[in-house]
Design a protein around this nucleic acid. Sequence first.
RNA 1: GCGCCUGUAGCUCAGCUGGAUAGAGCAACGGUUUUCUAAACCGUGGGUCAGGAGUUCGAAUCUCUUCAGGCGCGCCA
Length: 576
Amino acid sequence: MYNQISSSLSDFIDNELSLHADQRKALLSKHKLTLTDSLQKGHWTTNLCLVASNLAKKNPRDIALALIPKLENQPEIAKVELAGPGFVNIFLTREAFLNQLDDAHKNPNSFANSSHASNEKIQIEFVSANPTGPLHVGHGRGAAYGDAIGRILQRLGHEVSREYYVNDAGRQIDILACSIFLRRFECFDDDNFPGSAYKGSYILEIAQGIEIDSTLSQAQKDVLMDSLPSDDEEKIDVLIERIKTNYSNSWLLIREHGLDYVIKSIKEDLTEFKVIFDNWFFESSLGELSDKKSEISMALDQVKKDHAYEKNGAVWLESTKFGDDKDRVIIREDGRGTYLSADLAYHRNKLDRGFDTIINVWGSDHHGYIKRIEATIEAMGYRKKQMKVQLVQFANLFENGSKVKMSTRSGNFYTLKQLIDDIGPDASRFYYLSKQADQHLDFDIGVARSNSKDNLYYYVQYAHARICSVEKKYLESGGTLPDQFNNNDFNGCDELLQMALSAQFVIKSAGENLQPHLIVYYLRDISQSFHQFYNSVNILNAQESEQNNIIRSLIVVKSVIASSLKLLGIEPLDSM
RNA sequence: GCGCCUGUAGCUCAGCUGGAUAGAGCAACGGUUUUCUAAACCGUGGGUCAGGAGUUCGAAUCUCUUCAGGCGCGCCA
């Protein structure tokens, strides 16, 4: 119906309004055809006449008077009204209204207006936490978000690939290995353990799980720990150097073992969270700068040709030429690469894989990095529009009103796994997605865990479970589930059905704007409408003539709730 | 100092590609169960959409500005 009315409006614009080409274009892009928020305004409404009145310098009412007969001609349209300042409200025949639902049900993936949307190959890179420890609740938000976006975009017909970028090459991993080494050979007692090393209990666990024959004598330990710098950062770097040099075999073993262990545990946590990646991309696979044929060397060579220069012994990317605030070092004075140089090669790799769009889900503390990477992409000859960056703010965790403290280095933090064990993956995902990603989220686990009425997650699930229950009872009493509406019968569900129809537009918008929270709010609204309906009508004791349409409506609502929940990675509950 | 984000009911937030009376949950108060799951529903109270100016037929929404808060500005990752 949307497409049909929409094309009538386009015909009207082309044939009845004498507009210049640019005016016509403006009108086509600015006018809207939307489902109404209440059936008192009909089923569909358009602001076409209001927008056109500006462009055509005509009274909106006059334009409407010309438009209305064109619409009323159509057999599916019962009535057209001019309302408010110039809205045109379209009332469908009951049959046409109900047919829309059958159509939506038959083709859940065919979206209104889908002719304009081309199916793209989209890659989403998310989580990508450094493999130096377990995922914490902040990572969980990115995981829930990226995965939901993936599901929504897939539903809209795109081909989606989920990727985790593993920073397995940098200093962070050296610190991880160093921390494990120090624990394994008991170099420090707890009070003197270096401040920059990782102290979580998992470090001890890894250390104890490694099979190494050798031990360190007290004399060896003394040499290792002799006259260390007092600064925490310098201290750890010196330790790393000494261990690498003097205990290279143990070092390599520990480094590899530690990395494997942490990555494995991250994968396990994500699996439990129902987030499955199609690809794990290792930074180390880009190779070394010292290898002239490595991917990272080739990527750097490419930008060095035209967009880089040497200064103070370092190589600088002329990123200011592409909108960055300042130029950036890509090769340090000492010849090592920077974080940006690896990222540059990584983005080149991604774009060369043929994705139409790559979406980077980053922690919002990286927002200053966006211009830099955009500049890098352009310097390599790609279009920066191919990349979208979606920032995810940290989630503050509360319990009974007080903030749960989190600090990574100290090792004392609330992990994603704890959260999942505590309230389950589905409730976690629901609350993670309940607010726009790039804004602060206060997440109260007390509420999420509770059976009380302020738990929105259960409010939605309860709506679904209630419908399942009614259906079951209806079948037990000898009813059969109807597969179509009776056009002339009970219309008490029509408002509910109108809202069910809007699901496809909500999902479309959630996908286009990368905002899964729109679906959360939609779920809340349709659940509320259902609960209201449920309390106002005795379904199982309704007259037989009414029951067909009621049950049919509930089937539609149930399926809309279930499919919306699934887009968020949440399994609908059949009973509670 | 520069850049990005935020400011909507007592609290937590929707609504922001301009549109019809500004919404929801919680909290407060008062109701609803011989009947399908009361984790529900109904009702009442509660708002200068931070302040100001501008654009527009029309602004919570766009522009400018002031105030308040958060974050980012490394040859860190």
